[in-house]
Design a protein around this nucleic acid. Structure first.
Lengths: 213, 213
DNA sequence: CGACAATACGGAGAACCTCTCCGTTTTTCC
DNA sequence: GGAAAAACGGAGAGGTTCTCCGTATTGTCG
């Protein structure tokens, strides 16, 4: 066991702290929460491409502090949507445990997933896209990245789809990844649509496509 | 009729020249072509978010010259994809004139549309998104915008879909705009997919969804 | 052919972004 | 209380978008 007060807990001098390994100092924990709160506000107003400098200003910290806690935009976006992704996957677990037709459970969850993807100008989608980039890319600077967002959602979709497949409610050749990509695509393409019913309508089409013929 | 040599043809002092109203001076026409050629290269390398300064450098002109010919990023992107959009709509016209089943013609065109949307890191999609923003937005600085991209594609899709509807090959409640959005969504969500077959697979699902039940 | 009006150029500058570095400050623990 | 460790923050580097206006070039007419 490492001696206390020897390992650095800061970036760039060391790996940034994470939810699993919170900073030791109280002022550091407070600053991290302030950055997250400011990020939620600014991302709600301006979407996932909002200025990180503006978030630092809103949080009342320096840019160096923001970057020590979140080494890049994706890390911050992932931290912001983490709770909502956890809730979304919890929702999937609840649906799996409930006594409902498999196709209804899947449809229910995909509706919630679409809602999540579209919230805060597509924050959920932005987090997943960044995760997929990290997963697909080569060696990552800064060590292991947080892939929770992408993998958790994939696992939820896989579980619900598997049940529906076993029940014969969906076509056998449809993969969880393909289904997720279709829903993500709906979120992306309808982000600026003036028709508020269009996302639901397109999702209904996708659900139709998922049924066996 | 306005007297010659009195109306200004430059921005910001006047409206920028367009394809319909090319600049009078030979050096201006040459610079416009150089900017477009550089834009094609740079957008191919880096996608529609590439640096406009880099395009100006590559073209060997000043940023002021680039902005006089193309007042914003969208105008440049639209000019770059204009020829491909024209070809895509010409393709639709050819399919409409040919003696082929309506559903095959529609599928053929949607495949070409998906290919167009994905080319140059989603340039086609970027142009359409910007067009839709312009159409949906309020008063536009800089006068009338070029909506050719969005409207032309919409008209082509409408014509092909109409024929398929009349032939009973597609569900009656599917609109051209919904269909376009689904395909645009596929292009957006699979932009970074490591699976080269995924876009085609998702399009096949969408075509399935389009069929009447 | 030269002059002049019209057209076009370009790059400095304003204002902002991302991201890093390192001197300084604060916190925690012995 | 002091020292080690942890954290802060903002100047600065390098980049972006976009505008403005003094200067240069082009085209037309006498």
């Amino acid at each position: 066991m490492a001696a206390p007060h020897t390992a650095s807990h800061t970036a760039p001098h060391g790996a940034p702290p994470s939810a699993a390994q919170p900073p030791r100092r109280a002022d550091a924990r407070q600053n991290r929460e302030r950055v997250l709160a400011a990020a939620r506000e600014v991302f709600t107003e301006s979407g996932p491409e909002a200025s990180l400098n503006e978030i630092a200003r809103r949080a009342g910290v320096g840019p160096g502090t923001l970057y020590r806690h979140f080494p890049n935009r994706h890390a911050l976006v992932a931290a912001v949507v983490k709770d909502r992704v956890t809730a979304l996957c919890g929702h999937a677990d609840g649906l799996l445990a409930a006594d409902r037709p498999a196709d209804e459970a899947l449809a229910d969850w995909l509706r919630a997933f679409l809602e999540h993807a579209r919230t805060q100008h597509g924050m959920g989608v932005a987090a997943m896209i960044a995760d997929a980039d990290a997963a697909g890319g080569g060696a990552e600077a800064g060590g292991e990245l947080d892939l929770n967002c992408h993998l958790s959602i994939h696992n939820s979709a896989e579980a619900l789809l598997g049940r529906a497949r076993e029940a014969g409610s969906v076509r056998r050749d449809l993969s969880a990844d393909d289904l997720i990509q279709l829903v993500v695509g709906i979120a992306l393409s309808t982000a600026r649509s003036p028709d508020p019913d269009q996302p639901e309508r397109l999702l209904a089409l996708v659900l139709d496509a998922a049924r066996p013929r």
